[in-house]
């Protein structure tokens, strides 16, 4: 029972994980993109559309990846090249993404994912690792999307903290003027990472439409993009903590169903409150520690003008 719940929590947390990782990369480049919900919807509908029309799982993934990046490109042009207000642009992107997915999805309503795609995204035991007691069943008997999520977190972690390029990226987010002086191409760095971040959000959306609920329904994301934005703060911009945060929130989202019927004396309304309560507690704890690791990138949300150095 507990094991099956934990495994379900990992599945519920996976779309959040992709979106959170995407937003972490975006914010590390100094850009606050509040369009996560919109980019997830764009990825969800594009992945689904290509999946049902071509029957090719990899093409569906590529479409979701590109659609998310496409959404992010609008944001990137507005905020990086034109230096528009990031908050407003991000919100506009969310509205745009919602409209985009509704428009493309009009003809898809009620359609289901074809069987060979379902087979492709079926859970399978990860060789060797699935033999670890409990953890093997919880973490390593999942579908390829979940494994891709772990891999993405690790790769991004290594990239950010162990490579020169990752250091450059962090410099761009912290102090673009200094990074510019050191010869780092600010515009290129920002563009690349904002696009990559959007692409990951698109994949997170596609997980919901292709694997989690393998049928098209409008607004399948249902607010998870906003949870991801909060999770970035929860994870303190750290991709490893993002894994914990995403699975924790995934679990809290569904724990109510497992409690109902067991007679456990807790109000369902209290359970509904838990994710937000957890966020507040974490925020209080991290702000009390005043550790330098837990603060947002200094250049976050500020457009960079070279002339104003």
């Amino acid at each position: 029972m507990t094991v099956s719940f934990l495994a379900a929590a990992v599945v519920a947390g996976t779309p959040l994980l992709f979106a959170t990782l995407g937003e972490i990369i975006t914010e590390k480049a100094g850009n606050l993109n509040l369009g996560v919900e919109g980019m997830m919807l764009m990825g969800a509908v594009s992945g689904f559309y290509v999946g049902v029309t071509t029957n090719q799982p990899l093409l569906a993934l590529a479409a979701a990846f590109l659609a998310g990046a496409g959404g992010a490109l609008i944001f990137a042009v507005l905020t990086i090249s034109l230096r528009a207000n990031q908050v407003v642009s991000g919100l506009a992107l969310t509205i745009f993404g919602t409209g985009f997915s509704g428009f493309i999805g009009q003809k898809l309503i009620g359609q289901v994912v074809p069987n060979n795609l379902k087979a492709f995204f079926k859970p399978f035991p990860f060789p060797l690792l699935n033999r670890i007691p409990i953890l093997g069943e919880v973490l390593f008997s999942q579908d390829m999307f979940v494994y891709l999520g772990y891999a993405a977190a690790i790769v991004i972690g290594v990239y950010l903290y162990k490579t020169r390029l990752g250091m450059n990226l962090r410099a761009v987010g912290e102090n673009p003027a200094a990074a510019d002086a050191a010869g780092i191409n600010i515009t290129l760095n920002k563009y690349l990472h904002v696009l990559l971040g959007g692409a990951l959000c698109g994949l997170g959306g596609a997980y919901l439409s292709l694997v989690y609920v393998p049928a098209w329904q409008e607004n399948v994301i249902a607010g998870r993009g906003w949870i991801a934005v909060a999770l970035v703060i929860f994870a303190a911009w750290n991709p490893y903590k993002a894994v914990i945060g995403a699975f924790l929130f995934g679990g809290l989202d569904i724990i109510g169903f497992r409690i109902q019927g067991t007679g456990f004396p807790v109000s369902l309304y209290f359970v509904d409150m838990l994710p937000y309560l957890a966020t507040i507690v974490i925020l209080v704890i991290t702000s009390m520690k005043k550790s330098r690791e837990n603060v947002p990138p200094k250049g976050l949300g500020v457009s960079y003008f070279r002339e104003e150095r």
Partner: peptide, 8 residues
């Protein structure tokens, strides 16, 4: 309205 949660 939350297809994923209702499925869960």
């Amino acid at each position: 309205y939350d297809p994923a949660k209702e499925k869960e």
